[in-house]
Design a protein around this nucleic acid. Structure first.
Lengths: 84, 84
DNA sequence: TTAATGATTAGACAAATGTCTAAATAAAAT
DNA sequence: ATTTTATTTAGACATTTGTCTAATCATTAA
């Protein structure tokens, strides 16, 4: 829960998730879309992975990142308790 | 959007929201439930208010805080784009 | 009108965060 | 074999964050 909110609390990381909505992508392809360095994006991807929001598969020298939406259920569950 | 995720990215603030689910409460009554000082809780309430998650009404020397769930719609809207 | 109560503001400080460059690792290409 | 390409790790650094105590503001009670 903590890791999830932490991961979502950054505009760049949220933008990465939106990017991955269009399909999996390599770390490099993701990094190209942002004005930040590759290590910075790599770090963001790590936080997203820790929260379970993305998964990664190594393909040769590339690492492909894939959106994992099932984690959102956790968030929806938390929100649900506030339903009036 | 930023203020919303920021406000939610803290366990104490989330606990305050859950507390207010049971009904409005004064700043002091809220502070009593946590091990933190009154100024700290006041600061958390301020961040929640900035995000629109709570509203405050001054009643004499007290300040009553009320949960505002309508802001969650914004969050649900953001989540919706990821629906498969 | 003075003192007490409820709450916020101001300022300090340690810890966490987001960014960078340089270095390391791993795979592919020459 | 060597070099290039893709990515991560390590370490540094400025900014933000969460907390505190002390001081201030506002309202109520004596």
């Amino acid at each position: 829960m903590n890791a999830l909110f932490k991961a979502l609390n950054d505009p760049t990381r949220r933008a990465i998730l939106e990017r991955l909505r269009g399909g999996p992508a390599t770390a490099g392809a993701i990094a190209e879309q942002f004005q930040f360095s590759a290590p910075t994006i790599s770090h963001h991807l790590d936080l997203l992975r820790q929260a379970g929001l993305v998964t990664s598969q190594k393909q040769g020298q590339f690492v492909v990142y894939t959106l994992n939406m099932t984690v959102f259920d956790e968030l929806l569950g938390w929100l649900y308790q506030f339903k009036s």
